[in-house]
Structure formats: C-alpha cells, structure tokens
Amino acid sequence: MSRESDVEAQQSHGSSACSQPHGSVTQSQGSSSQSQGISSSSTSTMPNSSQSSHSSSGTLSSLETVSTQELYSIPEDQEPEDQEPEEPTPAPWARLWALQDGFANLECVNDNYWFGRDKSCEYCFDEPLLKRTDKYRTYSKKHFRIFREVGPKNSYIAYIEDHSGNGTFVNTELVGKGKRRPLNNNSEIALSLSRNKVFVFFDLTVDDQSVYPKALRDEYIMSKTLGSGACGEVKLAFERKTCKKVAIKIISKRKFAIGSAREADPALNVETEIEILKKLNHPCIIKIKNFFDAEDYYIVLELMEGGELFDKVVGNKRLKEATCKLYFYQMLLAVQYLHENGIIHRDLKPENVLLSSQEEDCLIKITDFGHSKILGETSLMRTLCGTPTYLAPEVLVSVGTAGYNRAVDCWSLGVILFICLSGYPPFSEHRTQVSLKDQITSGKYNFIPEVWAEVSEKALDLVKKLLVVDPKARFTTEEALRHPWLQDEDMKRKFQDLLSEENESTALPQVL
C-alpha cells in the first residue's frame, strides 16, 4: 500500500538533515546492470571481512566470479597478432551492500547512478522477487541517484539526491524531493519508509565518522582530508542543518603536550582565546566558526575552494607581477588587521594563504593565525623552527619566545613576496656552502639577476625593505602599504570589485 501522500506532506515541511535544493538533472540513458558494476546475484546478508577486503582492492568479489566451465583457453599460436591488451577495470570509489532480497550489490565505478523502476536507470528495480513485494509499487520510476562531484583539492564528494514520490531516507532522515545531501561511510539508505532499509553505503575513500566526538558529529558530517601540516590535519565537512561546506582543523593534544602547556602557563585558556579569535572579522582572514574541545581540538573554519598559494608557486613557478601585487596587498591588509588586534601570526607561508577560486584574479585569505593562542608560545615555536624557511632572523637566534615582536610577520611576508615574484625561495638548504640558518640570520638571500630583470624596481625595493635583518629597521605593514609599488588604483579597484562580488555589503578597509 502506498504512503505517498503521508511522505509528500513530510517532504513539504523539509528536513533537518544536511540537504539543499538542487537544479534539474539530465537523465542518464539506460545500460545493462552488469556493465555498471552490479553483481549478477542479489543478497540479503552483509559481507564478511574477506569479501570486503577483496573488493576494496579493486579485484572481483566472490559475488562477481564466473564459473571456469564457461571459459576456455586460447593457445598462444592462435592469439590474433593485432589484439590489444584489455584496459584494467577501474577501482570502485564506493560500494552499496544490499540489505534485502531482490536488490543486488553495487560497485560504484562510474560517477553517476540512477536507481528506480524505469529501465533507463543504471540500477533498475526489475528483479522478479522484488516485483512480488508489497513495497515495489511505492518505488518511483526514478527514485534517487548517487553521484560524486569534484571538491576541494581535486578530491571527490559523494551525494545522494531524492527524486521520489514516497521519499528517500539516509539514516532515517528524509532527504526531500529535489534535494541532495552528502553521503558518508556506513550510511543506511531506506526507500519509501524510513524503516525500509535497502542499502548500506560504503565510501571507500573516507574514514568512519565514529572516531570523532559526538558533539562534533551532531553538527557536522566529516568527509575527506584536505591537507595536513606540522600543526594538524584539515578535513572537509558539512553543516548538517545547511549542507554548507566547512573546513575542520584537528590539532592533536598529545603531539603538542597541550596539557603540560596549560600547567606551565595557567593563564592559557584555550576556550577564552578561541572566543576572541571567533570575533575577528576581516575579508582577508579565514573566519573561525566553531570550536570543540575533546581528546583533540577541532576548529571549524570557513572553507576556501581555490587551494593554497603554495600550489601556484611550487615547482619554480612565478606569478605575474600584477597578480603578485593583488595578492600581496590583501596579505598586508590581513596581517595589519591581526597586528591591530594584538595577534602575531608567526607562521606566514604560502600554505597559509588560501585562494577563493581558481581564477588568477581572486580574493585571498590568511589562515592559521591563532596557533600560539591554542598551542602555547613554546610549543608552537619548537614546531616552526623545524622548517625555518620563512622564519625571521630574530626568531632563530632567540631562546624560547623572548626578543621578537610583530616584525617577524613582515619578514615572512618579504619571503613570500620574493617567491611569488621570482619563482624560487630566497633562502634554501640546497645552497650547501652556507647553512639555512646562517643565510637567514645574515640576510644573504639568493639573488639571480636574469630572473629579477623581469621584475620592476619598485617591487624589488619593497622586497629589500622587508628582508632587513634588524627588526627595528624592517618595514611595518603600514609602511609597506604606503610603498610606491602598491599605489596602484587599478589594483585596488579590482580588489574592491572582487569584494563586491563576494558580498555587496563588504567595504574596502581604510588604508593610510
């Protein structure tokens, strides 16, 4: 008996699950189920560990084997000379395990699969056993689809999209007709009724959600790893209520002995410091949205989908001078704002400069500016000194954290500008005749005249004003913003236009 009217009423009120309206889709043409990776026989039982391990490696599972009696060998002398080797079968990115008779397991190899009674669906509900069930008529011709799209860092995100009359449910929550939600590992998919569980979705590319604290899981769906560094790992996640993407940084307390840091400095109150950081608001710094204190720290951040500045300059790639100017102007505005709010970044580098898009002209935002507030000064500097390429001379020669101030950030900005303009770092371990530390503390950077011949004198002058060993003589952010190279009204107008595109209400910060 159909429950279409009941569920449609529920759909009209929406769902609290991570779902959002989605535009129309072009329906895929039908194809045989076997060619799409559906096993030839149905099963109602969950797999054992041996079955799972075989399939996850990209080899055929026991459900897909063919009797050897149906095959015969071709003698080598009868092999056609022009026969080309077969292409290897792509490894599946996800697996659906059937929970009921009449449904088959599915190895997801393609990027898009339609499910329903219509014969054009890649996964067609046409098993005779299924057709005899009382629920068969409640399934729509095109009930739902599972697909994946390219996300940040060229990774993939799996989604389920509801197109049914009676509802598609993920972990008992209604997706909603015309809406989608991301699928995470071990999600249970039910059709027409929330208790009519048909599939379990296994994402073969992500970790299980159960490793994360419950308070975090209640608000966010964790997904793929976006990156990792000395101070922690960053994962893509989704807000459950809105389906908006965020980035979540995970900082290990054990790695940084944060408990010991608190004992050594009783004034170090991470929760208080995070609340201060959350109040920071500038178009060129990453917004801190939320914070969870569990076995590790979880910092929920605004997501930038254009990648890191590092990706644009790695491998001796240089940027156009006009692009360097647009990016560097924004970096200076961001660091100036942090300094005005009493925050020294201490870890400025291309990896911590994020881009809003893949376009050459785009907004940038500074991230990882609050680590000293979370990890403690000593722990952070011990970590950073392991990779000193961007560290100021006074940091390398000081004991502990004494003896330096916000000028350290201006040195790091000078190193970043040098790399963007030239395509190579000013200080490098590859210069074996002088140690990296000695290069930095003496201010002897690697200047290649033929490379810098293409760079304007004004740009080079600003680099020199920032890479000054004496912090008292080094340019401040205010002085850098007043430098002739940055007195470019076309560049500032472009920045204002980019801000307006992102948010019509965002105004250009005042600069002296």
Rank of each mutant, 00 (worst) to 15 (best):
E122D: 12
Y136W: 08
T133P: 05
S56Q: 05
L268H: 15
V7W: 04
K235G: 15
A215Q: 02
L106I: 07
V170T: 04
P21H: 05
I146L: 04
E173S: 08
P85G: 15
P80A: 10
K235D: 06
G23Y: 02
S39A: 10
K135E: 09
D162L: 01
E263M: 10
C243I: 15
N171Y: 06
F169W: 08
V109A: 07
V66T: 11
Y156T: 10
E4T: 08
A91C: 13
L96N: 05
Y123A: 13
F238L: 08
R145I: 06
S32A: 14
H13L: 10
F144N: 02
S15R: 13
R262P: 14
H22A: 08
S194N: 15
D118Y: 12
Y139M: 02
N171H: 08
R254E: 01
G116Q: 01
S260P: 09
P75E: 09
D162F: 03
E84H: 07
V109P: 02
E219Q: 08
T133H: 07
Q78Y: 13
Y156D: 09
T65P: 04
V66S: 07
F115S: 02
Y139P: 00
Q51W: 06
V109M: 10
S73D: 13
D203I: 09
R240V: 11
S52P: 03
S33W: 09
K119T: 10
S67R: 01
H22T: 08
L226G: 02
T26M: 15
V270F: 05
K214Q: 02
E233W: 04
N154Q: 15
V175W: 01
E271F: 06
K249C: 01
F199W: 00
C108W: 02
K235L: 07
S155I: 06
R95E: 01
K241H: 01
V211R: 05
S31A: 12
E64M: 00
S44Q: 05
I74L: 14
T168G: 01
G167Q: 01
G227T: 01
N184F: 09
H163A: 11
S42Y: 09
F147C: 02
E219V: 12
S120C: 10
I250M: 06
V175C: 11
D208C: 01
K142V: 08
L130P: 06
F201R: 01
A91H: 13
G58P: 11
N154A: 14
P75Q: 09
L183F: 07
A257S: 04
S24K: 05
I221H: 01
V7Y: 09
G102P: 14
P266T: 02
G37N: 04
S187G: 13
T45E: 12
P88C: 00
F169N: 04
K253D: 02
K142L: 09
I38S: 08
Q100I: 15
E70Q: 04
W114H: 11
